[in-house]
């Protein structure tokens, strides 16, 4: 038990290294501009995602699901997604269905529960990988332009662009606040088991408390941001059609996009053919 607790607290503290997180997130956002997926038109990719993000939910045919899964796996590889994201994907799929399987066994289910759960897993995996391809593969500015073209609220595109730019700064600030709390604090001794529990509670408490200065700082910053936006006429520009047209004029559908769509359609048609044959 003690070993387990030790491992757990170590694990959490290791993962919580801010630099590691920041690097992974930045790598994910800006690190892969030169891939095949990143070069595609965002509108085409979003339309592609709408198909692979919705249709698998409604289809129970195994060969179709397997085919779609293979396709999105290839596109994910093409997009060169950061390792952390893939790890989270694996964890997410397992926690959604693997856990359910274990509990099913507990309630007297047997191996017959595997087949429907396998289909459920395939569905979940296909949908998540499709989203990983589109949302990690595209860089944020392209993504928000694509969403805007489809008539998503301006707030959402603004939030995406803002989030990607502000996040490194916010993380650094949070780290600084956290470190200053640690410097001034006196953590409880953690040799015994109860000491370890107290240590964990202490760490969590510090994280909670460091949100107090962070909230005040962020309040100041968001006022500055909004005032700067207002000076440039942001709220007027957000609803103005001419501004939107100028912003979106950079989007262009090329032969590569059409080729990507056509290959996907070909693959899906092949899968459908297989499912009607067998």
């Amino acid at each position: 038990m003690e070993k387990l607790m030790n491992q757990l607290s170590e694990n959490i503290l290791d993962k919580f290294s801010m630099d590691y997180l920041r690097n992974q997130v930045l790598k994910n956002a800006y690190g892969n501009d030169d891939t095949v997926i990143a070069g595609l038109d965002p509108r085409i990719l979003i339309a592609w995602y709408l198909f692979f993000g919705l249709v698998p939910w409604f289809v129970n045919d195994l060969s179709f699901l397997l085919g779609s899964f293979l396709l999105v796996m290839i596109t994910t590889l093409l997009a060169r997604v950061a390792g952390l994201v893939l790890f989270l994907f694996g964890l997410g799929v397992f926690s959604q269905t693997g856990y359910l399987f274990l509990v099913t066994l507990l309630f007297g289910g047997d191996a017959s529960a595997v087949a429907p759960l396998l289909i459920l897993t395939l569905k979940v995996a296909t949908i998540s990988l499709a989203s990983v391809t589109v949302f990690s593969g595209l860089d944020p500015d392209k993504l928000s332009n694509g969403l805007m073209w489809y008539g998503c609220p301006e707030r959402l595109s603004f939030s995406i662009s803002y989030a990607y730019r502000m996040l490194p700064m916010l993380m650094e600030e949070f780290q600084n606040v956290l470190l200053s709390y640690r410097l001034r604090g006196n953590p409880p001794a953690h040799d015994t088991f109860s000491g370890k529990v107290r240590y964990l509670i202490y760490q969590v408490k510090i994280i909670m408390e460091s949100f107090y200065p962070l909230m005040l700082n962020t309040a100041k910053r968001s006022r500055t941001t909004v005032e700067a936006l207002e000076l440039r006429g942001y709220r007027y520009a957000a609803v103005n059609k001419t501004v939107k047209k100028i912003r979106l004029s950079a989007l262009k559908v090329t032969y590569n996009d059409l080729l990507f769509l056509a290959i996907s359609v070909l693959w899906v048609a092949l899968c459908l053919l297989c499912s009607t044959l067998f």
């Binding site: 997130v25 994910n28 993000g53 994201v85 990983v132 589109v134 949302f135 959402l156 939030s159 989030a163």
Partner: peptide
């Protein structure tokens, strides 16, 4: 809600549709 959607779902590529 937007923050959760943008930071943890879209930025990490975990956007799950419906």
């Amino acid at each position: 809600a937007t923050g959760e959607l943008v930071f943890s779902e879209i930025m990490l590529g975990q956007f799950g549709g419906l």
